[in-house]
Design a protein around this nucleic acid. Structure first.
Length: 290
DNA sequence: AGCGGCATGACCGTTACCTCA
DNA sequence: CTTGAGGTAACGGTCATGCCG
């Protein structure tokens, strides 16, 4: 950092010295009124600055201080180093500080802040991923629900007609439809539904688990060892969704919920304050959070 | 081996300052 | 010129870890 950064006239009782952490940071403590906080101000190169007289020392306090940003070159070099490894070993810190004419502590702080920024960005990305996943899932769920209702209606209608026919009532079902044939029609309906949902990947699970998935951050936030995002539910084949190979009893099956799990991928940024339903995400019931 | 004290570093939340629209 | 928002350097507090007596 070229040129000494000196600071504005400070209040009395200031102290010039090293930080309490015993590290090599030349900070000046400045009393701060009203807030219980010690504001310290940076003096570039102070560790090597020599004052020829008390007057020089006093004058240095009267010059306005600027908190300088790191230069473009410094940032570029730090970025390069960060991209190689975002943790900073002491040797590398010293070397970077030397190379960039910074205090080791400045390098350490830059890495800390850089990691924090990195984490924030990653959280934003994760949010986008989950949000778009949720949006897609909800859409598919709504479609399925509507289709399911329609099918139930049809089955109910057919059952009623069958009942009336078997009890001798005059119904419009052709006589050639036996009970068996009606079953097969119903079966056909299942098949068509199955075809319809063939594209989205699905898993079937108990209602309690479906509810808990949205809150299981330890699962959702999981990453593979190489640092890549790992979707919490792997895609699976939906072909057996309606087959009688379920591990659940009939009663349990009534409470089953279908989770669609499209392959998660990053999508363009979406305003996190506005959810897919068009109103702020926090206004949504907790269990509807993506 | 177990324990306490100390040094160090990472992380988190926060603050102060700078820059720019 | 002022102001507010956003970005960033830097802080204090806390916790984990390693070393040493």
């Amino acid at each position: 950092m070229e040129g000494g950064i000196v600071f504005e006239a400070l209040l009395q009782n200031q102290s010039v010295g090293f930080s309490s952490d015993g590290f090599d940071s030349p900070w000046v403590s400045k009393p701060f009124h009203g807030v219980k906080r010690n504001t310290k101000k940076w003096v570039s190169g102070q560790h090597e600055k020599e004052y020829n007289s008390d007057e020089d020392y006093e004058n240095s306090f009267r010059q306005p201080e600027k908190k300088r940003r790191l230069t473009v070159d410094q940032v570029q070099c730090l970025e390069k180093s960060f991209n190689k490894e975002n943790k900073l070993e002491p040797e590398r810190k010293i070397q970077l500080a030397k190379d960039l004419d910074l205090q080791p502590r400045q390098v350490a702080i830059w890495f800390q802040n850089r990691r924090a920024r990195c984490k924030t960005k990653q959280l934003e990305k994760d949010y986008d991923v989950l949000n778009s996943s949720y949006e897609k899932l909800k859409l598919e769920f709504d479609c399925l629900q509507k289709h399911n209702d329609k099918l139930k209606q049809e089955v109910q209608m057919l059952k009623e007609k069958l009942h009336r026919r078997e009890t001798g009532e005059n119904v419009s079902i052709p006589n050639e439809f036996s009970s068996k044939e009606l079953d097969s029609i119903a079966q056909e309906k299942k098949v068509s539904l199955q075809t319809w949902i063939d594209e989205p990947k699905m898993v079937i699970c108990k209602q309690e688990y479906a509810n808990s998935v949205s809150t299981k951050s330890d699962i959702i936030d999981s990453y593979s060892p190489d640092g890549n995002y790992s979707p919490f539910l792997e895609p699976c084949d939906s072909s057996n969704v309606f087959e009688n190979q379920s591990d659940f009893s009939q009663e349990e099956e009534d409470n089953l919920t279908i989770l669609t799990c499209p392959k998660i991928k990053y999508e363009p940024y979406i305003d996190p304050n506005e959810g897919p339903l068009g109103y702020p995400i926090n206004d949504r019931p907790f269990w509807l959070w993506p």
